[in-house]
Amino acid sequence: MRGREPMAGEGRSLLSMAASGAAWFAYLFLLMPSLIVIPISFGERTAVEFPPPRFSLDLYHQYFFEDQWMAATALSLRVAMGATIISVVAGVLAAYALVRCEFPGKKLVGVILLSPILVPIIAVALGLYLYFNALNIRGSELSLILAHSVITAPFVIVTAMAGLRHIDANLEIAATVMGAGRWRTLSRVTLPLLKPAVVAGALFAFLLSFDEVVIAWFVAKTASPTLPVAMYSSIQWSGVSPVLAAISTLLTVLSVTICLIVAAVTGREKR
């Protein structure tokens, strides 16, 4: 515990003990849902039991061999990849303009581009439902990809803007002074330096779209739902269906993996 300066050297007061106790209770509360699905996922098909009476991979087998789950997963993967590509291209370009250029109306543009973060998602979902209905493309994969791009783009923009602010603008100026044109500077200096932020933004965009449920609930066809929509209907109509424990465990593994990759990529950058 070296380096814990202000409070060290004195006995632990009742207050700080109560505070740490409350904090650890809260940490446990935060982790509990992700942890509890793991043992249940190795249980049996018949009922949700904790702890499971015997170890089995039945639930994983059920997930991987039922067409309904596989079709939903494949759709979610395609939509998330499409949304990631669109939001990374649009987002990184926009972030560059917002950080490196001066132009009138910059603040307003920034607010518009980031607003999907704070606008209630249900209003966006309803808007897209009506809009895609009117255009007669509701439920198509394209409509889902476009809808998800809107909510993933702000996260890419925020990540890329933070990345750009960490890059020393003098490096770009130096390249220009040495005769590199604007595009050459961008492709040879700025983008390579920005790579960790772009990778982080892309992975988060993917995860965000892959897990998104409210917009997909309004936009997707009932007959071909995305994975989160299929899970939502399953919890709503059949309660605690055991196969969901296996899916939840896999989704948790996906989230943790993505967070670890992001930590590794951005951490290397800092050192």
Binding site: S34, V37, I40, F50, V213, P228, Y232, S255
Partner: peptide, 14 residues
């Protein structure tokens, strides 16, 4: 970064 459905499912179990 955990899916809201994973959390909701977990809470129905808990």
């Amino acid at each position: 970064w955990t899916s809201i459905l994973v959390k909701s499912y977990a809470f129905t179990v808990i």
